[in-house]
Amino acid sequence: MSNLQSLAVAVEVSERKRDEARRVLQDALAAQQAARAQLDQLEDYARETEARWGMKADTAMQPEVMYHHYQFMARLGHAAGMQTGVVGDHAGRVDAAQRALLDAELRLASLRKVMDKRRYELELAQARRDQKQTDERAALQYSNASRSSVGQE
């Protein structure tokens, strides 16, 4: 039974690791979604700004205003590019967290399978012992009954 108890402890530890891996994955997914939402905001803002600028294309613009607009759009594009990198980093973290969760689930499943097999083997051994004892008792009773019947004759 000691072997079974140590397996039960290993299963419990493995369950905790699996739960922790699941929590890490959920956190990574939430961070990725937040980074993606921020990128979407930047891209939407860039489109809106370009749309507003396009409406004013008919009017005469000072060269300084045009320069500042292009400079602002370049900075906005740079920020969106950096945020794209952040989203990619988060995607890598999500992939790593998914692999870790899968590994933890596979380990837990294999430990449970080993534990079930050991439990089955123990139950089978106990059933064999019980059967052997039953057979021995039956043989003793038969032997005693045979001696008694021989002694009565």
Results as ranks from 00 to 15, higher is better:
Glu64Gly: 05
Pro63Trp: 15
Leu4Ile: 13
Asp95His: 10
Gly54Leu: 11
Arg36His: 12
Gln141Asn: 09
Met55Val: 14
Gly81Cys: 03
Lys17Gly: 10
Met66Asn: 08
Glu43Leu: 05
Met61His: 11
Val24Phe: 15
Ser6Ile: 07
Ala80Arg: 04
Gly88Met: 03
Glu12Asp: 05
Gln5Met: 02
Glu121Gly: 00
Ala127Thr: 08
Glu105His: 07
Gly92Glu: 03
Ala109Lys: 03
Arg99Thr: 14
Thr49Ser: 03
Met82Pro: 06
Thr84Val: 08
Ser2Ile: 14
Arg119Trp: 00
Val86Pro: 01
Ser149Asp: 10
Glu15Tyr: 10
Glu64Ala: 12
Gln62Arg: 11
Lys117Gln: 15
Ala96Cys: 02
Leu7Gln: 06
His68Asp: 01
Glu123Gly: 09
Arg129Lys: 15
Asp40Trp: 00
Gln126Ile: 07
Leu7Cys: 01
Arg147Ala: 15
Ala100Phe: 07
Pro63Met: 09
Arg118Tyr: 00
Arg118Ile: 07
Ala60Asn: 11
Asp19Thr: 11
Arg75Trp: 09
Arg119Lys: 09
Gln133Gly: 12
Val94Ile: 03
Ser146His: 08
Arg137Pro: 06
Arg16Tyr: 15
Asp89Lys: 08
Lys113Tyr: 13
Tyr67Ser: 08
Ala97Leu: 03
Ala51Leu: 02
Ala96Asp: 09
Thr134Val: 11
Glu123Asp: 15
Leu25Ser: 01
Met1Gly: 14
Ala145Asp: 11
Gly77Arg: 04
Met82Ile: 08
Arg93Glu: 08
Asp103Gly: 05
Val65Glu: 10
Gln38His: 07
Arg129Cys: 13
Thr134Asn: 05
Ser148Val: 04
Leu25Gly: 08
Arg23Met: 06
Ala127Gly: 13
Tyr70Asn: 15
Gly151Lys: 00
Val86Gln: 08
Arg75Ser: 07
Ser143Gly: 13
Arg99Ala: 14
Val24Tyr: 15
Glu105Cys: 03
Gln133Ile: 11
Ser149Phe: 00
Gln33Thr: 05
Tyr70Pro: 02
Ser146Lys: 03
Met82Ala: 13
Leu4Gln: 04
Glu15Asn: 09
Arg128Asn: 12
Gln131Tyr: 08
Gln41Gly: 09
His90Lys: 09
Val9Gly: 04
Lys117Asn: 14
Met115Phe: 00
Ala74Asn: 02
Ser148Lys: 12
Ala96Gly: 04
Ser149Glu: 15
Ala30His: 10
Arg36Gln: 13
Asp135Thr: 06
Lys56Pro: 00
Ser6Met: 06
